[in-house]
Design a protein around this nucleic acid. Structure first.
Length: 635
RNA sequence: GCCGCUAUAGCUCAGUAGGUAGAGCGCAUCCUUGGUAAGGAUGAGGUCACCGGUUCAAAUCCGGUUAGCGGCUCCA
């Protein structure tokens, strides 16, 4: 007999050699059905494995990360089997589970197309219906090499050769298909109820662009059809909210062939942008920042001094002026530093907080451009804080609080990460420790939860990153706070201390929106284009029912306009229904329907884009309420 | 940059045995004066992304360029 201790603390006894699957079934019929994989003393193993010693056992269903990973990984094997059956001669690379699904990379004479995906999917369904068991076979290095060499699976051979000497090598088979794999897998293909191949992409063997480009097929799978449908619905919803589509529909911005990656902001997009910027200015002024603006083009010597000429060159744009080399700025800091250096500073002045909405240009590879999310020029809501070492903690707390205040207005939840010293870093361990400790100390002081990202800091200093979570649960890295030890040295920054001597100030580099352009993209998707009134390009639209009501409509529109409300008048010769439909599609927060009754009483019938008809109200009341909504920046 | 796919009217898209272009929406004009998500009629609008080739003839076939889309890599 073997003793099995379970997660809940209970201990059960089984005959030696009982499989984990049988144990799961014994615990409960439901667990027997839902368990996908188990861990024995913390190590993940197949459910089909027999248990031959006393152990701590845990079962994982699709509800756990472990269960999902195994489930998707098994699905990727089924994908590989289907592809090799339909397209003989296809060689296999790798096929892991990823967040939300799985993929498999193939090297095939066949070019896969979306139509072929449907065929492959059908073949996968057959394999699942056949309910083939996944069988594990441990083998020696030589055995496995012989086998894959014979099968012409060069990628697998390469993988085996790269495995460490002591590695245990195993293969998994289902039906007549065998793949090199450490496992574990679900017991049989029948577990993989609902699947969908979602898209195709090229991918380099081992992610290295010097290697051969393979064809990657992405897919996802779930134990229930309904779960798959919900997942696909979320993807559809994300597509429906795509900022590129909404940006065009709402006439906010465009991208033109004449300037790939250089977005054009239309009048409505500019309203949104200006609102964001004035909110930003307001908050920064309150937080004691001074706004500056530095030039877009600066000479070569500056970029040599800052290190960009050596380290960031491939991302920069260059030009010549009167035979001298200049660069278009990819970052704002060197310019900002010149302002700091333009005068002598006393310790009494510190901290100095200088903020800049700085337009930077970075050369991105053509293939990565994506709407407003990845562009070649964007506006950083940058700021640099120069301070005494003793002020670091307090300043960081100030930035954290400011960031929190700004994100909160949009209703964003966010997560914080602290990134520590990377392998390649400059500066002594001592300075790093002190700096990292002050970031951590600041986070703890404000009671902020955070995750530590070991070794992910910038080479010049540790950093705190803010990851926004939008309404679809996607995260976006926006804000960042970085301690920078390099620039003050490179630029020989000083302040005069109490002792009358020169000292080196400490510098923080930080953003909150990150990139205004990208933040706008995130907002578009987060709100699905239905911006809160304070951000909406048009806040209210006046809809006269007939031509007879035009005069009254003009008067109402003028009153709103005079009160600072962004109002539009739809004076076209159309029916109200038609006008409402269009206003609704433009996601205008308030519609004011005006007819005989309203003209007579000095009222407006208010319709809200999501709350519907709110009934007739005196125009003054409406102006008062919408103004309050706008001024308090309600979401 | 690389791999794959795509490019027809402002937008969404039709247009296969190569024979000089079509719909709906939008726009303009007219009719209709209509109370909470599409009233009707008429009309304008395209050197079919660009360059080159094959052909008597190219939106359609071939090559190249550019841009977009999905990824790889990187990052705000």
């Amino acid at each position: 007999m073997v003793k099995v201790s379970l997660k809940d603390g209970s201990v059960r006894e089984y005959t030696k050699g009982t499989t984990l699957l049988d144990i799961a079934k014994d615990i409960s019929g439901r667990l027997g059905k839902e368990a996908l994989v188990a861990s024995v003393d913390g190590k993940l193993v197949d459910l089909t494995a027999p248990l031959d010693h006393d152990a701590a056992v845990e079962f994982f269903t699709f509800d756990s990360e472990e269960g999902r990973q195994v489930f998707r990984h098994s699905t990727s094997h089924v994908l590989a089997q289907a592809v090799q059956k339909l397209y003989p001669g296809t060689r296999l690379a790798i096929g892991p589970a990823i967040a939300g699904g799985f993929y498999y990379d193939f090297d095939s004479p066949e070019t896969f197309t979306p139509e072929k995906l449907a065929k492959i999917e059908a073949e996968m369904e057959n394999i699942i219906k056949a309910d083939l068991p996944f069988k594990r076979a441990a083998m020696s290095r030589q055995e496995s090499l012989d086998m894959f060499q014979k099968a012409g699976e060069e990628y697998k051979v390469e993988l085996i050769n790269d495995l460490p000497e002591e590695a245990a090598i195993s293969c998994y088979s289902q039906g007549d298909f065998t793949d090199l794999c450490a496992g574990p897998h679900v017991p049989s293909t029948g577990r993989l109820k609902a699947l969908k191949l979602t898209h195709l992409a090229g991918a380099y063997w081992r992610g290295n662009e010097k290697n051969k480009m393979l064809q990657r097929i992405y897919g996802t799978s779930f134990p229930k059809k309904s779960m798959l449908e919900e997942h696909l619905f979320r993807i559809e919803e994300a597509k429906r909210r795509d900022h590129r589509k909404l940006g065009a529909e709402l006439d906010l911005f465009s991208l033109q062939e004449e300037g790939p990656g250089f977005p054009f902001f239309h009048p409505k997009g500019m309203v949104l942008r200006n609102e964001l910027e004035s909110f930003w200015r307001e908050e920064h002024k309150k937080a004691g920042y001074h706004e500056i603006r530095t030039p877009i083009i600066l000479n070569r010597a500056l970029w040599e001094q800052s290190g960009h000429w050596d380290h960031y060159r491939e991302n920069m744009y260059f030009t010549k002026i009167d035979d001298f080399d200049y660069a278009v700025k990819p970052m704002n800091c060197p310019g900002g530093i010149l302002i700091y250096k333009s005068s002598l500073h006393s310790y009494r002045e510190l901290p100095i907080r200088m903020a800049e909405l700085g337009l930077v240009h970075r050369h991105e590879m053509s293939g990565v451009l994506h709407g407003l999310m990845r562009v070649r020029n964007f506006t950083q809501d940058d700021a640099h804080i120069y301070m005494l070492p003793s002020q670091v903690k307090e300043e960081i707390i100030g930035v954290i609080n400011l960031t929190d205040r700004i994100y909160r207005i949009f209703g964003f939840k966010y997560k914080v990460e602290l990134s520590t010293k990377p392998e390649k870093a400059i500066g002594s361990d001592e300075i790093w420790e002190m700096a990292t400790a002050s970031l951590e100390d600041a986070l703890r002081t404000v009671g902020m939860e955070f995750r530590v990202n070991e070794g992910d800091g910038a080479f010049y200093g540790p950093k705190i990153d803010f990851h926004l979570e939008d309404c679809l649960g996607r995260t976006w890295q926006c804000g960042t706070i970085q301690l920078d030890f390099q620039m003050p040295e490179l630029f020989d920054l000083n302040y005069v201390g109490e002792d009358g001597q020169k000292h080196r100030p400490v510098m923080i580099h930080r953003t909150i929106f990150g990139s205004i352009e990208r933040f706008i993209g995130i907002l578009i998707e987060h709100f699905a284009g239905a911006f809160p009134a304070w951000l909406a390009p048009v806040q209210a639209i006046v809809l006269p029912i007939t031509g007879r009501h035009l005069d009254y409509a003009r008067e109402v529109a003028a009153r709103l306009d005079a009160s600072g409300v962004r109002v539009q008048l739809d004076d076209r010769n159309e029916k109200v229904n038609y006008k409402i439909r269009e206003a609704q599609n433009q996601k205008i927060p308030y519609m004011l329907v005006l007819g005989d009754r309203e003209a007579e009483n000095g009222t407006a019938s208010v319709r809200h884009r999501s709350k519907g008809d709110l009934g007739a109200r005196p125009v003054v009341d409406f102006i008062r309420d919408i103004s309050a909504e706008i001024n308090t920046r309600q979401c």
